[in-house]
Structure formats: structure tokens, C-alpha cells
């Protein structure tokens, strides 16, 4: 009995220790964002700021064109979410519920594109985007999402396969074409899966740093992720402002995570993609 008690106690101790280690960096971020720069140098380690310096937040926002960055990020997110959801749903339907001979090997090709690292396609894609005159335009990032993405096609295809054939047959009886079946039966039934795709794409675009680095060079077009990195180079010594900006940039992701925890966890454990 006594031994058991020691064992459970030990387990709790290990669990608390681990959780503390993992949460500590976030606590440092939030508390650092609320310290004055004087306090940050004098007492960098306390997690409880002496005076709550909320002024850091407006100051951080004022030192960069925050609203411009934010509206660019939101534009990109909207465009990419629409693009990915639409194009991937179309392809996933064509590769699952339309009965044609090409669908098997074409699905194989979809999976094959996952194996190609971005390094190989980076330079030719850049040349292509420049040739199309999209360099330094938000379309350079939005347009490719209208052309499908292997992970999301895979995810949606798995979901579409679970829709009972009888439902589609009923639709065919009513004289629906493939187009009609897609919009009136499959799409309304697939809202949870489509929401998962939309959520993941939103997160991916919000976090995306590589594409704006490649395709944008006008600060008026920068999204937050890129603008924030530029902010590091110019305000590297004002850690409290940097931490405030980083906290603000992180907050929506944490909110989304708490609101859609189930979707997040399920999405990751079924496809293994990073949110």
C-alpha cells in the first residue's frame, strides 16, 4: 500500500516537472512582454512582472505597420482557405466518387507529390511566378492554393469514401449530374472534413514565412510572420517589445487551438502534418 502511494506520488512529480518545463518558455514570453526594459535587464528571471507594463503592446504595434501586416495576413488566409478547400474538394471528389479508369493512378501521383521536397520546386516556381508577373503580389501565394494540395486531397478523399453510395444513387435518381451530386450531396455532408482543411490551411498561411520571403519585397504587402522577422532585425535590443509582438502574433493560434482542440488533434494523428 505504502509502496503504491510512493509510486503514484513519483509519477505526479515527474508529470508536474515535465509540464512545468514545457510551459516555462511561454510564461517567459508573456511575463517578458509585460516588463519594462529596465526590469527586464535588472530582473530577467522572475515570472511575475513588477509593474504590468501594458504599454509595451501599443508600443510594439506602433513601431511597425501592424494593421497593414495584419490585413495582408488576413487577405492571404482568406484567399488560401478558399483556394485549398475548393480545389482539394473538387480533386478529392473526382478521385473518389467519380467512376473512371484514371482515378487510381492519378491518386498515386497525388501521393507522389508529397515526397518531393520544396527545395526542388522552389527555384522553378519562383521563375514561374515572376514570368506570370505575380512577383510582389499576394496572388503569388494565393494562386497555387487553387491548384490543390496532396495532404488535403488525401484527407478529403478518405472522408468522401465514407459517404454511402445509396445517397448518391438517390441523387442520380433525381437526375443530378456529377456537378449536382458534388454540390448538393457531398459538400453538405462533408462540412466537418472541409472545416478541418480550412482550419489547417488558415494556420499554415498564418505561420508561413518562406513564401512571403521569396515572393514579396514591398513592406506594404508583408504579412505578419514576415513583418515580425523584419522587426527582429531592427528592434533586436528591445526584447520586451519583441516579446509583446510575438505574443500578439501567437495569441490567435492559441485561441484557435482551444476552440478547435478536437479537430486539431484528430487532424494531426490521422495525417501527421504539422499545424
Amino acid at each position: 500500500m505504502n509502496q503504491r502511494w510512493v509510486k503514484t506520488g513519483g509519477l505526479y512529480l515527474v508529470a508536474w516537472f515535465t509540464v512545468t518545463i514545457f510551459s516555462l518558455p511561454l510564461l517567459v514570453m508573456v511575463s517578458g512582454s509585460l516588463k519594462s526594459s529596465e526590469q527586464l535587464t535588472r530582473d530577467p528571471y522572475s515570472l511575475w512582472p513588477a509593474g504590468w507594463n501594458w504599454i509595451n503592446y501599443p508600443e510594439a504595434l506602433a513601431s511597425m505597420p501592424f494593421l497593414v501586416y495584419l490585413s495582408n495576413t488576413l487577405l492571404l488566409c482568406t484567399g488560401c482557405v478558399i483556394g485549398t478547400t475548393l480545389s482539394c474538394a473538387l480533386a478529392a471528389y473526382g478521385l473518389s466518387r467519380v467512376d473512371w479508369s484514371g482515378r487510381r493512378w492519378m491518386f498515386g501521383l497525388v501521393i507522389a507529390t508529397m515526397l518531393l521536397p520544396w527545395h526542388i520546386t522552389m527555384i522553378p516556381r519562383f521563375v514561374l511566378i515572376s514570368e506570370l508577373g505575380l512577383y510582389n503580389s499576394l496572388w503569388s501565394i494565393v494562386l497555387p492554393t487553387f491548384l490543390g494540395d496532396a495532404f488535403f486531397i488525401f484527407l478529403l478523399r478518405q472522408f468522401f469514401m465514407t459517404i454511402p453510395e445509396q445517397l448518391l444513387d438517390a441523387g442520380r435518381m433525381d437526375g443530378l449530374s456529377q456537378w449536382g451530386l458534388f454540390w448538393q450531396i457531398v459538400i453538405p455532408l462533408s462540412k466537418p472534413a472541409l472545416a478541418t482543411v480550412a482550419l489547417f490551411q488558415f494556420v499554415i498561411t498564418w505561420n508561413d514565412f518562406g513564401s512571403p520571403l521569396l515572393y514579396l519585397n514591398d513592406p506594404q504587402k508583408f504579412p505578419l510572420a514576415y513583418g515580425l522577422e523584419r522587426f527582429v532585425s531592427s528592434y533586436g535590443d528591445q526584447t520586451n517589445l519583441l516579446l509583446a509582438a510575438a505574443t500578439l502574433f501567437t495569441l490567435p493560434m492559441i485561441l484557435i487551438f482551444f476552440l478547435a482542440q478536437k479537430t486539431f488533434i484528430q487532424g494531426i494523428s490521422t495525417t501527421g502534418i504539422k499545424g
Partner: peptide, 20 residues
């Protein structure tokens, strides 16, 4: 219908993977 539904992806496959 199969080709048409897959068309956006096929364009993407050619332009963003095969050609690169």
C-alpha cells in the same frame, strides 16, 4: 467528369511539380 473535377490539381501537378 473525372478529368474535369481533377483539372485544377492536374494543372497544379504539371505547373508546380512536373515542370519544376
Amino acid at each position: 467528369a473525372g478529368w474535369l473535377f481533377s483539372l485544377p490539381w492536374i494543372i497544379g501537378f504539371l505547373a508546380l511539380f512536373v515542370w519544376p
